[in-house]
Amino acid sequence: MIPLTRRRLLQAIAAAGTMPALHAGAQATYPGKPIRLIVPAAAGGATDIIGRLVAHQASLAWPQPMVVENVAGGGGVIGTQVVARASGDGHTLLMGAINHTINASLVGKLPYDSVKDFTFISHLVSIPNVLVVHPSLPVTTLAEFIQYARTHDTLVFASSGNGTSQHLSAEMFRMATGVKYQHVPYKGAAPATNDLLGGHVHLMFDNLPAAAPNIRAGKLRALAVTSARRNAAFPDLPAIAETVPGFDVRSWFGLMGPAGMPRPVVDKLHAEMVRIFTQPEVLRRIADMGAEAQVTDPAAFNAYVHQEMERWAKVVKASGATVQ
């Protein structure tokens, strides 16, 4: 009779021998049904655009479609919660965005753990904000703006809402430069932009794709982008980092899923993201938005999320922003 300990050892060895086949089978049969891609924002915004691009391209290549489902509300919390509570089989995914890392410190009581309840599959795209001012403001360069904003305490900046990347970009800029301005949060980017165009507020750190038409039309004066380097869509527009070394704020978008997803499924999804974001037509489309493809592997994306959460926690605390 084989001793119990030896029997268990032999069973473990036999099981280990079958694991590659089981993993290969899981990868080969995935997806076994349509994939829900939850976009935690309303249709038409950058998160929705990137999500639909991914879903369309994946659906063309895979035997099962990837279907976008917009679940807006709560600054992204409601849709994100849907994914956190879903099965980890890979058939419910999240188009994650920068608000995931901001909400971790901004929202008082999240209904999920921003790290433990998710699988981070791949960072996909980044989009900078851009500092735009009303043309009546007597500045034409970032250096002039910094000097002006340090000596005038009547400036007002608009944002699309308390705790958004537009708001916190301005707060991070304030922390780095010592400028003075007051914050007026709006319920969305559209009303904030309308008041900036009307001269009711002086400036805004807006999403570059949204601001681009007004910049090109001369209705707003762009001073700098918030990314670490210049943007290909506006090569003559400097980066804030050229004046304020180390400044780098980008709205990111990445593919996420519930916790516990099988590694073969994660690897298959990551490989598909690499395929999608190396296609020339896809790269042209996102470049026209002022966006940049930056596809990373799961480990790098996980590390980036932790880094972003730590950085935004400091800005949220310094700004006093909070959402209950």
Results as ranks from 00 to 15, higher is better:
229 R>A: 10
264 P>K: 09
44 G>D: 02
100 H>C: 10
136 S>G: 14
12 A>G: 13
116 K>I: 11
78 I>N: 13
173 F>Q: 04
2 I>N: 08
188 G>K: 01
7 R>H: 09
294 Q>K: 13
91 H>N: 01
127 I>P: 07
290 G>Y: 00
108 G>Q: 14
123 H>I: 04
23 H>E: 14
287 A>S: 10
51 G>V: 03
276 I>P: 05
271 A>N: 10
289 M>L: 15
33 K>G: 02
112 Y>C: 09
215 I>E: 02
76 G>P: 00
241 A>M: 05
81 Q>Y: 08
289 M>C: 00
100 H>Q: 15
130 V>S: 07
239 A>Q: 00
292 E>H: 06
283 L>S: 03
171 E>T: 01
43 A>W: 00
28 A>I: 06
294 Q>N: 09
40 P>H: 06
209 P>V: 07
193 T>H: 10
220 L>D: 03
211 A>V: 07
238 P>N: 07
18 T>N: 03
132 V>F: 05
169 S>D: 15
108 G>E: 13
172 M>C: 12
296 T>D: 12
206 D>W: 08
17 G>F: 11
138 P>M: 01
219 K>E: 12
121 I>R: 07
175 M>T: 03
97 A>L: 02
150 R>I: 00
304 Y>G: 10
179 V>L: 01
254 G>C: 09
169 S>A: 14
133 V>M: 04
289 M>H: 05
4 L>N: 12
39 V>K: 09
208 L>V: 11
123 H>Y: 03
65 P>F: 02
164 T>Q: 08
117 D>L: 09
291 A>Q: 00
301 F>V: 10
75 G>I: 01
142 L>S: 10
130 V>D: 01
47 T>F: 01
192 A>R: 09
100 H>V: 10
35 I>D: 02
46 A>V: 11
153 D>Q: 11
48 D>W: 00
10 L>W: 08
192 A>C: 09
10 L>A: 04
82 V>P: 00
120 F>K: 15
